[in-house]
Every structure is written in structure tokens, then in C-alpha cells.
Design a binder for these strands. Structure first.
Lengths: 203, 203
DNA sequence: CCCGCCATCTAGACGTTGACTAGTTTACGA
DNA sequence: TCGTAAACTAGTCAACGTCTAGATGGCGGG
């Protein structure tokens, strides 16, 4: 309500506008080249305004990370149920990363933001509850199994692929779209698992 | 030879000294906070000297990346033979990443350096030859199989774990040493593979 | 109705950075 | 020995993050 005024002294939604601008900037130039003054310029305010809302650069990254973990939970949570929820969650994780590269580039880089921020811890813990919860329900796992290994394997796999893709390390080696690659990777994991089983048996 | 003179006008090994300083600096503060002036300070030369050897900041990152790919080939190549060479190579990849965090933080970030540098392309292609070559020899693969999926799965897995670890996303969730985790992950991949097989069969 | 308070935002300054330029020093081959 | 090119220094510039003082205006208590 009341969002017609073009630019009053008090912006009204400046905080969120700055976050949006920051995410757009991260998507455009990467987290390393994020400039607080450029964010202010995008939002049409003075160069000092962002500091009032976020204290410093790490504060902006913190806000992005919080939004990112919430977005991730919203995207992945709904599909992460049932015996294959963990597998579907992995696909959703990758979809999330590709759909929100700006958020993704920040959320798992604690060196960028204020780790320990309570709001952040909350959002992150919620996301991890989805990860671990769906792992416990994975097909074939006896109840009360320690799922650390499964979580690490699945998370590393999804995270690794998303990271490699977003950093354009795969562009030359694959086609431009990651859609049809899912099947190939699925196949690869199955083959990897078999080889690992065999290697374990040989010893 | 002739390296007794403490600090002649011509440094003699300045280029390599600057690379070493840069790697140390990346390990200390991360690639984002790398400062050319700080590198010069570490090497005891004027702030403009690095530009002469590397042109610009991306030039320094390029030099680090080249060294990184060569180091990776040297570390992983020797163990990447036989039916389990691909699996052992994955472990070696992670060992390399943890032993050389500065190099690793740069080598797969083409946005940081001058992609297309011929020397870099050479070093990178050599590393990828090891990756693909060992995948083709993986236990259980029929000859002339398309190994894209296997490569992606294995690389994503190793890369994801190393990245998550180095960005300290796992510190709170695991112990401080990654040594004993290898077995757990191996187990996790096997379980993942079985679940994926089952899911594929259900459809 | 208005008046003062305080969050919001502006504007200027400071030290540091990456990049550019001109100039100085030194190694080395003709 | 001399001159040329590589190696390095030193000064400059715009842009950056952060800090500070001050201007602006929404809003609740009188």
C-alpha cells in the first residue's frame, strides 16, 4: 500500500531494495566484485545508505545468505519426502542453485558473511533439518542408521555439480543445458557405487 | 646459483617469489581479499613491480592456476591407474585440495583469471586427460562406454566435498579431521547408488 | 494541532586499493 | 665500452569501504 511516491526522502522499502540490488549485482559480477556504492547507485540512494541498514559489506552478505537458506528450504522441502525424497531433493538443490545463482554463490561462503548471526543460524538449521530428515528416510536404509555418509555423499555430489557448472568449468565439456545430464550422472553414481563395492570386497 | 646477495635491484627470482607470496596470501585471506600491494610488500618490492610480471590481478591468478593444474596432475596422475584408479584419483583430488588450499581456491574459478591463456589450457587439458583416462578404465565399464556421467559424478563428489570442507561448512557437523570420513562417504555413495537403481526400476 | 524525538538518509572525508605512466637502475650482447 | 631492453621504482588517479556530522521527515505524546 502507498507505493506510488517515486522517491521520497524515506524510501520505505530500502532494506529489501538493497538486498535485491545486491543479489542482482552478485549475479552480474560475482561476490568478489560486489560494491556497496554500486548497490546504492542501483537503488538510487547515497553511497552511505547501505551501511545504515547492514553496518558493513559482510552485513549485506549475511542478509543475502539468510534469504538464500529460506529460499532453499522452500524449494527443496516440498519434494524431500518419501523413500526417494533425498534423491529428488538433490535434484531440487541443483535446480535451486541454477535458478538463484546470486543467492547460491553466497550462502555457503561463511567467510563472506557474519557467521553466528542468530537469524542466519535459524534459517540454516531449518535447511539442514530437511537435508538430514530426508536422508534418514532414504530407500534401503535400516532405521537409526548413521546418515552422515549418505548426507555427505549426496550433498557433495549436488553441491559439486552446481558449483562446477556455475563457475563454467563444464561449458566446454558439455552442452549448454544441464537438463539431460541428470540421467548421465545418475548412471555414473550407480556405476561408481558398484565399483566401490567391488573394491571394498577385494580387500 | 648466486643467491647470496640479499636484495639487488634485480631480484632474480621475483616472478616465482610473487607467485609464492600470492598463494600464501590466498591461503591466509582468500582469493577475494588478495591485494597486489600486499604481495609486493611480502616480496619486498615496490607496489608496481607485480604488474610488470603479471600485467594485472587476473594475471597473478592465471599464474596460480597454471601452477595448480600442474600440481594436481603430479599428485593425482601416479595413482590414477588400474580398475580402481578413478576411485583412488578421487581421494587424491581431495588430498590435493586440502594440502594446497590456495591453489585449489583459484584453479576452478575462471572468473578470476585469464581463461584462454595458452599455457593454462595446456596444463588444464593434461589434468583432464588423467580424469577421463582413469574413468575409462574404471572397474565394470564396458569398453567404449561414454564416461561423461561417471566423470561428472566422481568429479562433482570430490569437488563438492573439498569445497564444502574448505569453506568450513562441515566443521560443526563433523570432527576437525577429514581422514576417517572417507569410509563413511564411500558407504554413502554405495547406498545412494542402490537407491538410484531401485528408483529407476520402479518407474 | 504541533512539537520534539529518532530512525532514515545525505554529504564529505580518510586511508587503501588496482591500474597507469614516466623515469631510474642494471644485465647483457654487439 | 656502450646502448638497448628488461626489471624495478615512484608518483598519480579514480573508485572503494568505512567513519562522521548533519539534514530530513514520519510519528506518537501533549
Amino acid at each position: 500500500m502507498a507505493s506510488d511516491t517515486p522517491k521520497p526522502y524515506h524510501h520505505g522499502h530500502l532494506r529489501q531494495a538493497l538486498i535485491d540490488a545486491a543479489v542482482a549485482e552478485v549475479e552480474a559480477v560475482g561476490p568478489a566484485a560486489l560494491s556497496m556504492r554500486e548497490i546504492a547507485r542501483r537503488a538510487g540512494v547515497s553511497h552511505g545508505a547501505p551501511a545504515h541498514h547492514f553496518r558493513d559489506k559482510a552485513g549485506i552478505f549475511t542478509a543475502i545468505a539468510i534469504e538464500a537458506f529460506r529460499l532453499a528450504s522452500q524449494t527443496i522441502g516440498p519434494v524431500a519426502h518419501g523413500p526417494y525424497g533425498f534423491l529428488d531433493g538433490g535434484n531440487a538443490y541443483i535446480s535451486f542453485a541454477l535458478a538463484h545463482p546470486g543467492h547460491f554463490a553466497v550462502m555457503l561462503r561463511p567467510d563472506l558473511y557474519h557467521d553466528g548471526d542468530p537469524e542466519l543460524s535459524l534459517a540454516r538449521d531449518e535447511a539442514f533439518q530437511i537435508l538430514y530428515g530426508s536422508a534418514r528416510n532414504l530407500y534401503g536404509l535400516p532405521p537409526d542408521t548413521d546418515v552422515t555418509g549418505v548426507v555427505l555423499a549426496g550433498w557433495s555430489l549436488s553441491h559439486g555439480f552446481a558449483t562446477l557448472w556455475l563457475n563454467s568449468n563444464l561449458k566446454d565439456r558439455l552442452g549448454p543445458t544441464p537438463a539431460d545430464i541428470a540421467d548421465q550422472i545418475r548412471d555414473g553414481v550407480i556405476r561408481l557405487g558398484r565399483a566401490l563395492e567391488q573394491q571394498r570386497g577385494d580387500q
